[in-house]
Design a protein around this nucleic acid. Sequence first.
DNA 1: GCCGTTTTCGGCCCGACTGTTTTCAGTCG
Length: 572
Amino acid sequence: MLENKSIADIFTEIADILDIQGENPFRIRSYRNAARTIGDMSESLQDLVKTGRNLEEIPGIGKSIHEKILEIMKTGKCQSLEELKKKTPPGLTELLRLEGLGPKKVKLLYDGLGVDSVDRLEKAAQAGRLKDLSGMGEKTEEKILKSIEQFRAGIGRFKLSTGFTYAEALGRYLGDVPGVKRLDPAGSFRRRRETIGDLDILAICTKTSKVMERFVAYGEVKDVISKGETKSSIRLRNGLQVDLRVLDEESYGAALHYFTGSKAHNVAIRERAKEMGLKVSEYGVFRARDEKRLTGAREEDVFQAVGLPIIPPELREDRGEIAAAEEGRLPRLIEPADIRGDLQMHTVATDGKSSIAEMAQKAKELGYSYLAITDHSQAVRVAGGLNEKALAKHLKEVEKVSGQISGIRILKGVEVDILGDGTLDLKDDILKECEVVLGSVHSRFNMEEGEMTKRIIRAIKNPCVHILAHPTGRLILEREPYKVNLKEVVQAALDYGVVLEINAYPDRLDLRDVDARMARDMGAKLAISTDAHSRQQLELMKFGVFTARRGWIEAKDVINTYPLDQMLNSLR
DNA sequence: GCCGTTTTCGGCCCGACTGTTTTCAGTCG
Ligand SMILES: Nc1nc2c(ncn2[C@H]2C[C@H](O)[C@@H](COP(=O)(O)OP(=O)(O)OP(=O)(O)O)O2)c(=O)[nH]1
Ligand SMILES: [Mg+2]
Ligand SMILES: [Mg+2]
Ligand SMILES: [Zn+2]
């Protein structure tokens, strides 16, 4: 099975090589756009082709790239990439990953010194040979050695939840600086992507404010990457890069729009503005013909200037949000306040840290009207999962505590393991005692796609299962999802009335944004659940809501926004 | 290479910071 990512990687490599060869930048951009689109898709291209879909309907995929995709599917290779690799050694694209090294310098290093790998680059820099090249000097050499160190540290992206920790700390630090009027985290953090490549912060302040000085003097700083009047970048000790952009109050809206991105969204908005005789930048919206400033103090002013309603940050990925805005089809996105209950959590009965009563108390504090206690079943040994007898006793306990706590309904539940053959880990008799039954996979992740799909669909067919929990089993930055045909799973869930979970735990976020969007488009119902293992973790619900919002999901798509009776009725 | 309620050709976002460039290219946001 050919994964989208493998195809996307091929187009990225073509783009990188063309870049080094100094090819037409727009042609290169087309390959990069296609790679991004393909890499971001929920459905597999191979499945789309099998079902006869015309790939050229996908924005950014035209005749040439379509043909290449088919060629890759057929032969596993792309001949034009093979040709390109004959002229430009593959090691050069690795050099592009180094900070501060772009296509022009990589070409110079190769042509001038034969540098075709990071190791060789390091040797050349250490020997002081880089200075021999025109356009390279002492400082470039130093910077390159630093970049190599950074590259070798292998620091990639960070979880969104980590971003919150650092954004809050930096917010407190910079918030105290005199002259700072506004401080907004922007970039992928504000769009609530599941991971962030860096932290982008917008500051609005008075002309005399020392905010830049204070920023680069932050205690956690390891390196100052660059420092200017309006823009600086630092690297923290843990490897996280932080970018600070400073602008005047009159530019606040345009600046926030620019710095929130995404890049593709910005480009699309700016193209649209251009067609309208306008120019959009981080400074504001201008009339193209005479550069007269028209607006830009508020974010909605920017959208209004280009004839659109404001688009929520989570949707700004150039995935159809501009067309939807134009046609008045933007979803009314779910909000944290819509959530009325939490349908997955664990207690001390298995691997949780809090009691049933503590969970219920916390849920009450969060303003919920219900919660489901869903401890593990016996097959999940590491978690101390319950067998039929232990679960029966546990359910009695839930009932008892429920009677003792007023103002919130505690539902009897279980997270029953889906065994390797798709049968469930507990007998139907006991499952029927539960008001909420989650089914999920915790073992044998390495199955073939077909086998895994069958396994999960078999579980869906069991009438006891209400919700399919963490449907793809991934752990962000740690474990890839197991191979499964999600579209078939969603279809089965629809056919049998099973709800799909968006697991809100920040390491999971499963279904992920684009998968949840596909499920919603197919008509599936969702449940956003924290999978809390302590009462504090019930607060993680917001991460699930972020993911849902990124999936264009509305409150009506999510069963735990419903009042108790309606929620229970929506279970099969 | 992709795209099109002005186009099937001719455009394709816009600006900040760095270094060695004596006037701006390269890289990045
Ligand atoms: N107009 C325009 N804006 C850009 C460009 N590159 C970046 N931006 C804006 C939009 C981005 O969201 C924002 C921050 O840049 P980043 O490189 O940090 O990207 P972002 O935070 O979206 O993703 P990340 O998780 O950091 O990889 O700056 C660009 O080429 N053009
Ligand atoms: Mg960023
Ligand atoms: Mg950034
Ligand atoms: Zn689980």
